[in-house]
Design a protein around this nucleic acid. Structure first.
Lengths: 225, 225
DNA sequence: TTATAAAGCGAACCGATGTTCGATGTCAAG
DNA sequence: CTTGACATCGAACATCGGTTCGCTTTATAA
């Protein structure tokens, strides 16, 4: 059906229509095309436009001025498409520090936040999760070093109160009055909290005082001059 | 300037133009508008179109059929815009390990890569840099722990051979035959390489054997079940 | 009520624009 | 050379479609 033998003129016409629409917001007339592509007669433009319609590269509305429309090529721009696609806007609800409880998103969770308080995360980084359950925290202080998390890092969490073994979670240790980021392992009635840094040892805490605040999905660190 | 007193007709006109363009790919004529909005005279349509131009909601190309264009409203959708906007696709060109040199992007740098080898980064994370100079590496091994970088992390770099003091850079130490991530400080004719982890001390290396491969812009870590 | 401005109407004008058709040129097959 | 498909040209045609202008209607204030 769609032949590959486009003449130079037809290619020119096609690209001219595209850029004309970009520039003006509406398609060109037959005469405007002719002038741009150096075709003397309107009938020749008309002739070639009909060819392009045959090749399925163009649609025409008969008897209508500027009645042109480029057929969108589904097969084009596979990468570009990916580039433009999904960013998640995750609310940055506060800071996380060893000495304080984890701030959690308020009632208006999932609704509107100031743009300033949102951080953008590529959806590809977050395995499919409902965006409503996501929030982010900025790390303050160096106390999370054992979790391989530095001051200024942003961690993206999913709000949840339970954890599976091996999950990295933000927990509040009620007895210590302390927040920490660790890998979670339930062992009998106590919990082993294992730092991400393999050179450091775990701590063991009574399961009753481990309050999971959320599971860590990602850590983002940006460095500036 | 832009008044808020749009008449019912003007609102109808505006929305009709929008949906007409959506449907046809080109703007309607004055008469088509009149028919759709129930205006008897073309002059009235013309009159209202000019009003809309005054209010800065529309642009017209004089003497041109279908010479209409909706003014894009910058103030709308502040958040949505952010959600949809710019993702950078950065080529993931290889792995970084302490024991090997840094792989650098090949000749076709900036051109085409497989989607599989690209990672997506929100433009907002990368202070404005030319995308052509960016590349990414996956960290293997635990040897970068002193840089607060864990196995599996992805680091985004800007290709450059020099560094400013304080920059976190990927360097190749020719004498040691070793790659490392450190903060760079030139002190006389030697370089102090300071680990990101504040509990660890610096190393000092002859400036001549410090080969900067790139500056670290971001570190991304995703955790999975 | 009257004056004034804004909004609407209808018709005429004329350039803009898609369509049609006969004539010409080109090129490869027969 | 002849033939026929293909591309081009030029011109004529009939609408399409933006513009203009005089007039009427509606709304608001004096």
């Amino acid at each position: 059906m769609a032949q590959k033998e486009l003449s130079t003129r037809q290619k020119k016409i096609l690209s001219f229509i595209g850029s004309f629409i970009d520039e003006h917001g509406f398609p060109p007339t037959i005469r405007e095309i002719g002038e741009a592509v150096n075709i003397a007669s309107t009938s020749v433009v008309n002739y070639n436009l009909n060819k392009l319609v045959e090749y399925n590269l163009l649609e025409r509305a008969p008897e209508v001025s500027r009645g042109l429309r480029l057929v969108k090529d589904e097969t084009e721009l596979p990468v570009r498409y990916a580039e433009q696609s999904n960013l998640l806007a995750v609310p940055l609800v506060g800071k996380i520090a060893a000495s304080e409880p984890v701030p959690l998103p308020g009632e208006d969770f999932g609704y509107y936040y100031d743009a300033d308080d949102m951080i953008e995360v590529p959806q590809s980084m977050i395995e499919s999760t409902h965006r409503e359950e996501l929030f982010a925290l900025r790390v303050t202080g160096d106390s999370m070093i054992d979790a391989m998390v530095a001051e200024g890092d942003i961690i993206v969490l999913k709000r949840q109160n339970t954890a599976r073994n091996g999950d990295m979670v933000a927990v509040w240790l009620s007895e210590h009055g302390e927040t920490t980021l660790k890998n979670y392992f339930l062992e009998g009635n106590r919990v082993r909290l294992q730092p991400a840094n393999p050179t450091m040892g775990p701590i063991y805490v009574d399961a009753k005082q481990v309050h999971v605040q959320g599971r860590v999905l990602a850590v983002l660190r940006t460095l500036h001059h």
